[in-house]
Every structure is written in structure tokens, then in C-alpha cells.
């Protein structure tokens, strides 16, 4: 069942994700063309959230594979439960029952890892392959094969075909260049820092207590902060933290209590260097620009 574009945007909003039109289209195409989606963008712009919201929209499970250096098939696809197999063999030999190969290499002893789990679901799940750039090139090549055929061959067990094609979302932070082959296979969306309006909408969606004008004020300040020379540019997560802090301190307007506002602005900064650079004057200058 494919839903059309406006319907998808609405459902995303219900799931708590305010998507721009381009992202909504990319998610729509994912379903239409049955292709994976590659999301790139700075840390903290909500790449992982997209997958969560998508799972929510389709009312399905989210299966997550966090990539890291040295990730291999045994940890991403399947592994035999050797300990149990050995125990089973010994227990049976001790009690004089013959052990057949089919018993040992059966479903019972198969450990499903995220990738196998994802293709064996009855309903198509959302498969999030997080930070693919951290995995090795070898893993990427293997993934490419899986994403084109959606079937897995286990030598002792046979070929497992996908029961349903999962919605695959890949994210990358750009610590390593991803191969052209994988890029080509995927739809692409670059997640940028949200526009002022979108960020305000996100704030209102996530923090219902916040007023419309206050949300807009906060996102205007953030727009200015992101233009400063910072080592770690604050993402949406930081904005939410800051807004939550302000609400917690019962501040309703950024100009009402400069002292507290400045103190809470430290939510946005994540390195010592940025904290030193972000002086009271800088904060005042930024706040001053936002009427």
C-alpha cells in the first residue's frame, strides 16, 4: 500500500518529525522505487530521527545496525550458536542418540543479526544502517550485494529470500568516502540545518508548552549562532535542549532575563574552545539582533 505525498507528510508530522518537501519526496520515492535512502549531513541534524519517524509512519518495527570499524558478517548478518551446538552434540552422544547434521544446523541454533532479521520479517520493517562510513570497505561491498538481491545464502542452511523488502535508511557522517556503487544504488538526501520556520515547527512539535512566538525567537537566535565560527555547530538536538532548559526556568522571552539566558546558552556549546569564544558580548550581540 503506497500512500501519496501529502498523506506521507502529514503522517510524518504526526510522528513528530517535521520534514521539508524534499525529504518527504525522498521517502515517498523510497517506497515507490523500493530503493534504499542515503542520508548525509552534519551530526545532530536528525538523520537517525528520520528512520524512527518512518517506522512510526508505517507502523512497523525499526531494526538498527550501528556500524563500526571491524563490523563483519558474523555480527551483522548471522552466526551459529556454537556453544549450544557443542552442548547439544555432547548431550546427545552421551545419551546414545545419533546426531544428524540437519539438527545441528537448524533454526534453533541460528543467531539472527540485524540484517537477517530485517529480511525475515513478515511486514516490511525499517532497517536503519547507521553511520555506514564507519564500517570497512569490505562490509560496504557485502551490503551492496544484500541490498540488490535481498537474499542471503547460509552454506549449511540454504538461501533465505526476503519475505518483504525492508525500507532501508543509511546514514553517513562523512568520516570516510563511501563508494560510488553504493551511492548510486541509493536515493540521496542531504539533511541540512533546518530553516528558521522549520526549526520553530520542530520546537513546537516536540515541546508543546512553548509558544509560537517564543519558538520562532529561539530558532532565529540559533540561525545566528550557527553562523558564528564554532568548532561544533549546534544541531537540532542542542536547540531542543536549550529550549527545554528555558522552559524549565520559566523564561518566556529571551530578553526578559539576559543573565539566565546566557547561562543556559551553554547547552548549545560542546567544546571548551567554543565556550571561551562565546563570551557575554557575543551572546548579547546575537540576542540583540533578534527582536
Amino acid at each position: 500500500m503506497t500512500m501519496n505525498l501529502p498523506e506521507l507528510s502529514l503522517k510524518l508530522a504526526d510522528a513528530g518529525y517535521v520534514a521539508d518537501r524534499e525529504l518527504a519526496m525522498a521517502l515517498h520515492l523510497m517506497e515507490l522505487l523500493q530503493r534504499p535512502l542515503l542520508l548525509e549531513g552534519e551530526a545532530g541534524v536528525g538523520k537517525t530521527e528520520v528512520a524512527k519517524a518512518l517506522a512510526n509512519v508505517h507502523g512497523t518495527t525499526l531494526i538498527r545496525l550501528q556500524c563500526y570499524e571491524g563490523l563483519d558478517r558474523a555480527e551483522s548478518l548471522y552466526e551459529w550458536n556454537y556453544q549450544r551446538q557443542l552442548l547439544a552434540i555432547q548431550a546427545r552422544t552421551a545419551s546414545g542418540i545419533s546426531v544428524s547434521e540437519d539438527d545441528i544446523f537448524s533454526e534453533r541454533f541460528l543467531l539472527e543479526r540485524p540484517l537477517l532479521q530485517a529480511i525475515r520479517q513478515e511486514r516490511p520493517p525499517v532497517l536503519l544502517i547507521d553511520e555506514i562510513d564507519r564500517a570497512d570497505e569490505e562490509f560496504e561491498a557485502f551490503l551492496l550485494e544484500l541490498l540488490s538481491d535481498f537474499q542471503v545464502t547460509i552454506p549449511e542452511f540454504g538461501t533465505i529470500k526476503a519475505r518483504s523488502i525492508p525500507y532501508v535508511v543509511l546514514t553517513s557522517n562523512g568520516t570516510r568516502e563511501i563508494s560510488d556503487a553504493l551511492r548510486r544504488r541509493c536515493l540521496y538526501h542531504y539533511v541540512d540545518y533546518p530553516s528558521v520556520e522549520r526549526e520553530a515547527a520542530i520546537l513546537q512539535r516536540r515541546l508543546p508548552d512553548i509558544g509560537a512566538s517564543f519558538a520562532l525567537q529561539i530558532s532565529r537566535v540559533l540561525e545566528k549562532v550557527r553562523k558564528e565560527e564554532l568548532r561544533k555547530v549546534p544541531g537540532v538536538a542542542e536547540t531542543l535542549d536549550w529550549a527545554a532548559a528555558l522552559i524549565g526556568l520559566e523564561i518566556k522571552d529571551l530578553h526578559s532575563n539576559p543573565e539566565k539566558v546566557f547561562d543556559t546558552m551553554m547547552c548549545l556549546l560542546k567544546t571548551q574552545e567554543d565556550k571561551l569564544r562565546f563570551t557575554r558580548e557575543v551572546a548579547e550581540r546575537l540576542l540583540g539582533k533578534v527582536a
Binding site: L5, M25, A26, L33, L38, R183, Y188, Y190
Partner: peptide
């Protein structure tokens, strides 16, 4: 055009430089 553009953008782009 707006629909066509967003659809083709997701389909044809594969890196930031393409996107921009």
C-alpha cells in the same frame, strides 16, 4: 516542476556536491 525537481533530486544526487 516542483514535484519533478524534488523527485529527480533524490534519485540522481549521490553526494553533497551533487546536492548543492
Amino acid at each position: 516542476p516542483a514535484i519533478q525537481r524534488t523527485a529527480f533530486k533524490a534519485l540522481f544526487c549521490s553526494r553533497v556536491s551533487d546536492w548543492k
